[in-house]
Every structure is written in C-alpha cells, then in structure tokens.
Nucleic acid binder design. Structure first.
Lengths: 227, 227
DNA sequence: CGGATCTGCGTCCTTCGGATACTGTTTCCT
DNA sequence: AGGAAACAGTATCCGAAGGACGCAGATCCG
C-alpha cells in the first residue's frame, strides 16, 4: 500500500463531488479544456492561472479549489489533450502497426503542439497518456524482445518522435540560423563534415522517417537474431 | 550576406572591448562561469539574473551590459559548460568511435545535468556546441550514408542520449510513481502489456544502451545494404 | 435552526525579467 | 588642454507570474 500523490489520484479517479457546501460551478474538465484551448491557440507560454481563469469568467484563485497548482493544471491539460489511442489492426505485422501508431501520435501532437514540449521530465501520468504507452508496447509483444527490452524500445521510439516532431521540441540543428551556415562554410577547416553539409541542407522532416526506419531496423535485427 | 543575430556574433566572436569608457569589471566569461556554478549546484531553476549577479557581487542590471537577456545568458552558459570534444581515434571503426563519443557526452552532461534540459528547441548554438555535432558526424563519413543521412543519424543519436540521460530529461516512464505501478497491476485488463511489465521493472540505465545498440544496428544495416 | 463545510473572491507577498534614467569614468578629437 | 562622446555599473520602477491567506456567502446535515 504505497501512498499515492494527490495529483495521481486526481488524474485517475477524478474528483469526488463534495457532500456539503454549494455545488461547484467550475469543473476540472472545464479548466482543462480552457487551458488546452489557450495553449493550442497562443502557445503554452500563454497558459497562466490568470489567463485560464479569465477565459472561464472566474478569478485566478478559484482555480486552486480544483487544481493544486500549475503543475497539476498542466497534467490535467495533457490528459485532456491526449486523445484516445488508435486501434491497431492485430493482423498487421508489428512493424506496420508501430508506423501507424507513430503517425497517430504525430496527429495528436500536431493538434496540440505544446504537448511534446510539456510531457518531459519527472511528472505524473494519467490513464490516457499511459494508454499510449500501452498501445505502443502491444505490437512488440509479437517480437522476441524481452518485456524490459520492449519498454526500452517504446521509449526509444517516443523520444525520437518527440525530437523530430518539430524544431521547437528538437535539439536544434545549427544551420537554422542562415548566418550560421555561412560561418560554417567560412571555417570549413574546423567543421569539415558540417561545412560539407551546409550546401546539401537538412532533411525535410527533421530526420523523422530516417530515424524511425533505423530504429525499426535495429529492433528487427535483434528480433531476427533470436528467431 | 545574411544578417546575423547579435547573440550569434557574441557566441562566435566574443565581445570586442570598448574603445572609450571605463574598462569593464565584469566579463562574459565570469558571468557564464557564475551561471554554470549556480546551475551545477542548485539546478537550472536557481539561475536568475539576480542570483548570478549577486554571486559576482554586482547588481542585476549590470549583467545587461554584457548579455542581452536571459536567453543569451543561457546560451553563453551552455557554451562555457560544454567542454572540448573528445579526440576520437580515426583508426577505430566508426561504431566504436560513436560509442566513445556518446560516453564523452554523457560525462559532460553528468557534470552539468542542466545542459541536456536547456539545449532544446529553437536557439542559437556556439562554436563549441557545434563542434560536438561535428565530432559525432565525423565517424559516419566512413559509412556509405549520404551527408543528409549522416546528419539525421547524428540527431537521432543526440536525441536518444538526451532522452535516456536522466529521468529529468526523459519522457517519464509511468511506474516511477510506485503507486502507479500498483494501479497498473490492478487494472491489468486495460494495460496488459504494462501490467506484465510492472513486475519486471524498467532497465537500469533508462534504456540508454539498448537504444544505442538498436540505433547503431539500424545504421549498420543501412550501411551494409549499400556495400 | 445552527454549526460545519465548501466555493469562489479579494488582498497581499515574493520573485522574475526587463525598461529607463542617472552617475561617474575613460578616451578620443578638436 | 578641454570638452564631447561613449561606456560601466547602479537605482528605481514596472507588469506578470505563482501562490498563501483569510473572508463572505451558499449549502447541507443533524
């Protein structure tokens, strides 16, 4: 019986309505939806207690009756924004299913570009976000990977998709400052490989499909080595 | 002739000392070093203009004579924290060299745990950080990958190392809240693959070596397919 | 009906990044 | 030599941020 954080209980069980006192006008769902709307429209930087409350017609402090703080606000926002997992066809080969999964995840992240930025670091996950992990894990059950390896593979996949989803979530590539490309070309003796590259240019999708294929190839090789 | 941002000029050329006026007591190097020290000791959250200035015995506003704002402070901090790239033995096979590189990067990130957290998203890179990209790129010149593919491979590598370096930079794994593992076990019908896993546990290194091997395997397969 | 309880509000505090204006110092140019 | 220009560091002020605390009114249970 491990003691659970209040935020985890909120994410998984919701709030039990109060027995006494006036009925709540606000709800966690409304708060989360308002936060998501602001983040979608004006970016995650525009999400403040004040802004969320104002968009609902309440004062800032009213939010704290439903949410313990900004971290918990973000947690419920993520849980609201992350939609249902895709239904993967079990008859398809595992590699195909992973690709479908990756596209579905990209769709959600396209609708809510702030999600891959927020869902990093130590934090608490809700049932829907966990469902996405489960969903990615499931195709790998068909492989010869051990359970631990499957999990490692899923996080390898998630990390790569996050890193290549947009430039805002990636470790930036240097030549996105065009002036820097010029510098690299000028000091070609220090950066021969990069200078060579600046004329070629980077790939369209930030290397998403390249990395995905490499990862799946790597998994496949491990899988086949045990067949 | 593309116009270059002032921050990029600062990072690559440093500051040209003023012709007139009193000599500066502060220096960018001192500011960067102070910021790095605070971040190393108390975390990146403790780095504020106030804190950095105070640790140097100056007022907050004095920093703005040397640094245009917080973003630029972080940029020079990263550039100061990122050390010289490792010298890779060109006689070693490319895969070996990449592994050595990855370990060297991990060493730097261990000394400055905030660096992998800060070096994300659109930002400006300095010469030393670019040198690390160059360093990772160089072994791949021995492979049959195209220049663009080499670059994609490097960012695949960087992303994975960042994601697995520590839990603070990773997309968190759900069962780090021990209570959540219990929940997953209880609702095993919703999360069969995860529930199965929670008894096994996650890997020690957040899947770093697993992912690294898979990535290198994937690159190797592509390389060999063209031999 | 009265106390307990809950919701939402008003006020206050700290910290943050940053703009602006000022003081004193150094150097170049006439 | 002397004034003007440029520069370094400071003092003050501001708005926005997250959040603590106490209060008023509404609601329900005994």
């Amino acid at each position: 019986m491990s003691t659970e954080s209040a935020t985890t209980t909120l994410l998984w069980d919701g709030r039990t309505p109060a027995a006494r006192g006036p009925a709540a006008t606000l709800s966690i769902e409304a708060i989360a939806a308002a936060g998501v709307a602001i983040a979608d429209e004006h970016g995650i930087g525009a999400v403040s207690m004040q802004a969320v409350a104002e968009s609902l017609g309440f004062t800032k402090m009213a939010l704290y009756r439903h949410v313990r703080g900004k971290d918990e606000l973000l947690a419920v926002m993520v849980e609201a924004a992350v939609e249902e997992v895709p239904r993967l066809d079990p008859r398809q080969p595992w590699r195909e299913r992973i690709t479908v999964f990756a596209d579905a995840l990209a769709d959600v992240w396209r609708r809510h570009p702030w999600v891959p930025w927020v869902t990093r670091g130590r934090r608490l996950m809700g049932p829907r976000e966990v469902a996405w992990v489960e969903c990615a894990l499931e195709p790998l059950v068909d492989t010869s990977l051990t359970p631990t390896e499957r999990l490692d593979a899923v996080f390898l996949l998630f990390g790569h998709l996050r890193n290549t989803h947009s430039l805002d979530t990636a470790g930036t590539q240097p030549w996105h400052d065009p002036a820097l490309g010029e510098r690299l070309r000028q000091s070609a003796e220090h950066y021969p490989a990069l200078a060579d590259l600046s004329s070629v240019g980077a790939s369209e999708d930030n290397g998403r499909s390249f990395g995905l294929e490499r990862i799946l190839d790597g998994i496949e090789r491990l899988h086949e080595s045990r067949a």
